[in-house]
Write a protein that binds this DNA or RNA. Structure first.
Lengths: 177, 177
DNA sequence: AGCAACTACTTGAACGTTCAAGTCATTCCC
DNA sequence: GGGAATGACTTGAACGTTCAAGTAGTTGCT
């Protein structure tokens, strides 16, 4: 593409923007794949299942309702339901009817918690190897801020939720630090 | 998680690192989904198929061998083969035996090029709406540089390839301005 | 009390990706 | 010049995600 598009009134990206865009697209393609690969290889689960386990593990009684968990892991209810079925068949989580309505609670079992504690260090190590340790602290901070800004358009609700749980004071409103 | 991990000798992330990591992970999860959604809705294709079309469109004779195209779109040969079958069944690309060996060329048809020219502006608009226009120029540049640095670990070959085709001079070697 | 609307979840089929073969021409070697 | 190895794909099954129902409690209206 680049020039041959007959882009009436669409402003194409200038070289600097295009440069940044290409690398960003490449990263958002490659990074999830790399993280998934590590989890799959070392633990036999994917990133979404990992998020479920983590979400449950730091929740009171290691339990959450499906709908809240779906938000926490940022996936659809359907996707979550299938994933919970898989995890339950391995005995890592269990379903239990909750008090009201059709609501269901998912609980991280002792087995599940034990496995997560084995898995987590390796995943953190990978996060360091691929991202945290290859960037200078200020570069990492800038990356985080840019990611947050982008997310504010892509999924505003999620930013609100994250800001609430993580450093509600420190992480300002628009331009932390 | 956060504390309850019995992480012998694994250095956990400090609050600032964790903050950046959370937003980064959320972004690399949400951004591809958002881009895919726009393409699916407006054009009935996914990001990978779009990359194929773009790759072919600015290639001599709108043609590339499968293996080269797989590199350009950064996917496996198998994935590409399936995707090309889908695109071919819509008449957007065509397969042709190339000179040597079992090699196959894929060519963007006139129909395919026409469709791409209709599709591209909308995609650029989305890129602007979600990323390029919500960040200040220096923030975007920093994001691009960070992405490139991360990619250097995740898939070094790809960085080399991208640097070669895009702004070989301007995009220095380690810390482009 | 009866019925619609809503919320919370599950399920099955369709679709795209991955993974493990399978095919077929070419090249290298004895 | 036959046979193994290599390169360039294709194909089919398995798996996870999405999408469109389906199920089942709860609430609100009349």
């Amino acid at each position: 593409m680049a020039d041959e598009v007959h882009a009436d009134e669409v402003s194409w990206l200038d070289p600097d923007q295009l440069w940044a865009w290409m690398y960003l697209v490449a990263m958002v393609e490659a990074l999830p794949a790399a993280l998934d690969a590590q989890l799959k290889r070392d633990a036999g689960i994917n990133r979404f299942e990992y998020m479920i386990l983590v979400g449950l593990s730091d929740s009171p009684d290691r339990t959450m309702a499906m709908s809240r968990l779906a938000l926490a892991a940022s996936g659809s209810l359907s996707r979550l339901s299938h994933a919970v079925s898989r995890l339950a068949s391995r005995g890592w989580v269990e379903r239990r009817a909750a008090g009201t309505g059709r609501q269901m609670d998912v609980r991280l079992t002792d087995t599940g918690l034990a496995r997560l504690q084995e898995i987590a260090p390796g995943h953190v190590r990978e996060a360091r190897r691929l991202v945290v340790d290859v960037l200078a602290p200020d570069e990492l901070a800038a990356l985080g801020r840019a990611a947050r800004t982008v997310l504010q358009t892509v999924s505003p609700g999620f930013v609100a939720a994250l800001d609430e749980t993580h450093a509600p004071g420190a992480a300002g409103d628009d331009a932390p630090t």
